[in-house]
Structures are given as C-alpha cells and as structure tokens.
Simulated assay, not measured.
Amino acid sequence: MADKLDTPLTGRRRWMPKVDLESEGVGRVAEAIARFTGTPQFLIWLSVFVFAWLGWNTWGPESLRFDKVELGFTTLTLMLSLQASYAAPLILLAQNRQDDRDRVTAEQDRQRAERNLSDTEYVARELAALRIALNDVATRDFLRSEIRDMLEELQARDHEDETKPDEAGFSQGGKDT
C-alpha cells in the first residue's frame, strides 16, 4: 500500500458534481442579479412584497398568519437579511468584473493612443520631408518669372538685331536708306 502513495487516484467519484465557480456563466448571472437589484423596478417589487407581507400578517385571518406582529416579523427580517447577505457579494463580484473590463479597456485605449501618436509623428516627419523637397522644386510663380525674364531678354535681342546694320550696311528691317 505504501508504494501507491506517489500515484494520484484516477476517476474518483464525488457525491456532488464539481461546479466551476470561476466560469464566465457564474459571473454573468451575478452581474445580472446585481444589475437587477439596482433598478427602481426591484425596489418597487421589494416594497410591494414587504407591504403585502406586513399587511397579511397584521390584518389577515389570525389562523393563516405565519409571521407574528408580537415577535417583530422575525421571518421577514430573516428573509431581508438573507437577501442583503447575498446581494452584497453579488454586487462586489459584478464590480470586480467591471473593474477587470475597465482595466482591459484602459490598456486598449493606451495602446491605441500610442499607435495614434506614432502615426501622427510619422505623418509629421513625412510632411517635413515634403516641405524640404518642395523647397528644391520650382514653383509656378518662380517659373513664370523666369519665363518672363527670358521673354524680355529675347525681345531685347530682337530689338537689338533690328537696329543693328548688317555687313552690307543695310539694317535688318528690310529697307535700306
């Protein structure tokens, strides 16, 4: 028997089935209950229940009353205490799950902001490179002024050529004087 102590048992039978309390389903149910207990609808239904309970056990037929006024409605007090003792941990569980979701969302937002910042810096660098490159490129106004200067220069040459006599002594205008 001592030689089997180092091997784990396989297929051990349980008298109760194992419930995974860390599952997503349990968390969703807890959140649904916590969400419902925080609504005006729940408060109205709880108030109606308490008033009906008090009314029945105060003015109902004495033989059918199940919670005595003389004892301070002990059963109602116990039921409300039980409801509160379950509601508080369910609310905390729902709050913890919300905190986890908020943490994940904040991390995703931080990563998105980092990507946006790097994209913005990349676009700014590209824009600066384009501005530097455009300083080397001739602009429309620069080209117009250069063409205007060349045109004026050509017109000045043509004017000089018209007034200058050719080798035979004739002017370039076509008539000799």
Rank of each mutant, 00 (worst) to 15 (best):
M1P: 04
M1T: 11
L5P: 02
P8I: 12
L9R: 05
T10I: 11
R13W: 11
K18A: 11
V19K: 02
S23K: 00
E24P: 00
E24K: 06
V26N: 05
G27N: 09
F36N: 02
T37K: 01
T39D: 00
F42Q: 00
L46V: 07
S47D: 14
F49H: 06
W56R: 04
S63G: 05
L64S: 06
D67V: 04
Q83K: 11
Q83D: 10
Y86S: 06
Y86V: 13
Y86Q: 12
A88W: 13
A88Y: 15
L92W: 12
L93A: 09
Q95N: 09
N96Y: 11
R97G: 05
Q98F: 04
D100Q: 14
D100T: 05
D100R: 13
E107R: 02
D109W: 00
R115W: 00
L117P: 03
S118R: 11
R125H: 04
L127H: 05
L127Q: 12
L130K: 06
N135C: 08
V137H: 05
T139N: 01
R140M: 08
L151K: 08
L154H: 13
L154F: 10
Q155A: 10
Q155F: 06
R157M: 09
D158N: 13
H159S: 15
H159N: 15
D161R: 07
K164T: 15
E167I: 10
E167W: 06
F170E: 11
G174M: 00
